[in-house]
Write a protein that binds this DNA or RNA. Structure first.
Lengths: 145, 145
DNA sequence: AAAATAAAAGACAAAAATATCTTTTATTAA
DNA sequence: TTAATAAAAGATATTTTTGTCTTTTATTTT
């Protein structure tokens, strides 16, 4: 299994793509995004609609419209995207799927995974949506294939 | 999203359950296991058949038959169960789902997740199937709900 | 106002994961 | 050697995830 759902993978890649494309103020259309991150266009559209409804990204209809992320939003942590799409089970769920797993009623892997989940959470909390704009502009990082 | 698939969660819980129930040499039936870990019986049966075919656990048909794990197998790492069920993408896959992601062509999260994946891998490599038998016998750890 | 553009929304389809039910095979015990 | 037991195997069903296609709404430009 992967860490994120396919939906979340597309969401993160799209958000990075939009962030770096609109750091200069321009908007970018769904077609460009889908091709820029190598994802199915209409499926991605649904995902972005959802992120837009939740206020994590912005969009404008009509000619010269498209998606964008404003400067304050660039500073938000990636964890908000993940949580909006995949929920918080990656951060708080039991690795063995036990509802009642806790400090007082731990599954065998409870402590080990608590540390790992905390690390993932911390990492995604300190990584902002705009973190990679420069490297993306310089072509040092990849978002497709 | 969870770390493991539901199938893998059941597999790990079942393996721990069988390990501790058979540390004394007895076999345990699918009904007992399913109830002991709170999983759908027939679905679990499929999973255990698969693990049995792959030699990770053992079984015997007929009266007084059931599943068991022999002493050498108790020493095998949990990572083998995970890999048998979920494959190795948790250990080696790109967090953003990019096939071509690598050191020379990294996705934005490549380095951070490489460290996390390594940690998970290491942990599951050093945790053996029989690791928790004592705590399970003492009722200190939970495998259901 | 009309035409063009682009996201939003809705309906539908395919694939994968999860779950259930039935039949078969191997083994044991009476 | 028949009956009982228990896993293996097969068939089918349900749910969730992923993906596609069409229509509607909002906005802009002519």
């Amino acid at each position: 299994m992967a860490i994120f759902s396919k939906t979340c993978e597309y969401a993160i890649r799209a958000v990075f793509f939009i962030a770096h494309k609109t750091a200069t103020g321009n908007r970018v259309g769904i077609k460009d995004i889908a091709q820029g991150i190598d994802s199915p266009e209409h499926f991605l559209a649904k995902i972005l609609q959802d992120l837009s409804r939740k206020g994590l990204i912005s969009s404008i209809k009509g000619p010269h419209g498209g998606f964008y992320i404003d400067t304050p939003a660039l500073a938000r942590p990636l964890s908000e995207i993940v949580e909006a799409v995949d929920g918080n089970s990656l951060f708080y769920g039991c690795a063995l799927g036990l509802k009642q797993c806790s400090e007082v009623n731990p599954c065998p892997l409870h402590n080990e995974f608590k540390a790992i989940r905390n690390r993932i959470h911390k990492m995604l909390n300190t990584t902002t949506i705009g973190s990679f704009n420069e490297e993306l502009m310089e072509g040092l990082l990849s978002l497709k294939k």
